[in-house]
Nucleic acid binder design. Structure first.
Lengths: 239, 239
DNA sequence: CGAGGGTTTGAAGTGCATCAAATAGTGTGG
DNA sequence: CCACACTATTTGATGCACTTCAAACCCTCG
């Protein structure tokens, strides 16, 4: 009897094309890991034998230099899978993972996934799709860092959080604390604070703690996405 | 009778696991395109129906904003394939392509590749591998832009051009002109020039046109890679 | 030899980082 | 429910890195 119901996994997009047998095997071998804020899940120096599913909280994926400077790769919440690319990299990952706040993840042996991929072309196709999506996000991110200033990067970050079809006044809640958003956008917390103030001067926008009220999405788009290219205007990449 | 020998394709890494039948089909439908410097091959706004193989010269992949600012995605030379990811993006690409200098490419219908992928898991695996590699390069690039200064980025660029096992004096020839290298590294030509001068002050290094003579790889690594993380020291990612 | 693009240099401005310190906010134990 | 400790956030002052604009130089190629 496994610690989790296989039903749990079936409802996660990543596993939707896995065979029942594999779901079963994964469930059997699953481990649940609770993480305090800031505690490390794995380091890029570790040999990767498992992959992970976020079940609660936020997980930060990052790279770290010798002198401690960090570059944030991604920040994931519930139902996102990570660490699976080690399969194609000789069981290594190029990043480390830690809890951005109190979090919980589930881990599974990579070898089970490996076997499934070899036989299941639907799953492979899913992974291709998600990798392509990720590649596009990365391209976009490089563009962001190269062509946009801090305020515009914040603007685009906000736009990706909302449903673009909405009109009128909109309230956006930052998904995690401002320091982390700053890191995610490749800037210092101080810069984030000042750049958000600058954004307030440019467009109608009110900030209360983590909540940001925007009066006109159009204005924000006009300001932030003037330096966007193919993904114009900024939106969540999901297709 | 096709315009190219199928042998030509079989020797390209990308096609090595394609079935003979598909190689044949690709050869039959191949088109050869000659490009003058600066001429555009396709735009991200076009619908993608073909993918490409570089046969001569250099092709620049880039994204462009409304006001003309460019962000270079990649710069490819002979035997590299591009545009194939459109298969997983509803026949769109998120970048445009143009000749960085006089160049030649071959184009093939995406639909042939699509059919092959559906039946050929070896090819799929190859593509996964190359996408993973690309993703890692992108992560590295984001790190570069975030954590390194201009001189260090140049240093790492040079390191990726040479065989790290060599010792003693080494001569590196820049693969394309300095303006393009600058764009590839996300900086202005002026900044490139000045940053290269700064590099000269830091380590023993001589520049004559496109040729750069380095006396000690170690010194360069020490200077440039102090802000590198997992891929330390900088090297060509090929495995 | 001359035209044009690539490259370098100079001068000035801008944006972000850094360091320091104040302020706001949050969770904990009493 | 309050006080304290600790963290997150903001603000100020300053410096550095890169960009921008302008102009000179150099190299190549017709």
């Amino acid at each position: 009897m496994s610690i989790i119901k296989s039903n749990t996994l079936k409802n996660i997009p990543f596993f939707k094309n896995c065979s029942d047998k594999t779901i079963e095997a994964l469930s059997d071998q699953a481990q649940i890991i609770d993480l305090e804020k800031g505690s490390m899940l794995f380091s890029n120096k570790d040999k990767a034998e498992r992959f992970y599913l976020v079940t609660k909280g936020w997980i930060k994926l990052y790279r770290e230099t010798i002198d401690g400077a960090q570059s944030v790769v991604d920040i994931l919440n519930a139902n996102n899978v990570f660490g699976e690319v080690a399969l194609f990299q000789n069981d290594t990952t190029s990043f480390s993972a830690e809890a951005a706040e109190r979090a919980q993840v589930m881990s599974f042996p990579l070898c089970i996934l490996k076997k499934e991929i070899e036989n299941n072309s639907n799953l492979t196709m899913d992974m291709m799709l998600s990798m392509t999506r990720h590649a596009r996000q990365q391209d976009q991110e490089i563009e962001n860092r190269t062509l946009k200033n801090a305020s515009q990067r914040i603007g685009c970050f906000l736009l990706r959080l909302v449903d673009q079809r909405k009109t009128g006044e909109i309230v956006i809640k930052l998904p995690y604390d401002k320091t982390l958003v700053a890191a995610r956008l490749g800037m210092q917390p101080e810069t984030f604070s000042r750049a958000l103030n600058k954004l307030k001067d440019q467009i109608d926008l009110h900030v209360v703690g983590r909540e940001i009220r925007i009066l006109s999405l159009q204005d924000l788009t006009k300001y932030a996405c003037s330096a966007c290219s193919s993904e114009f205007p900024c939106h969540d990449i999901k297709s």
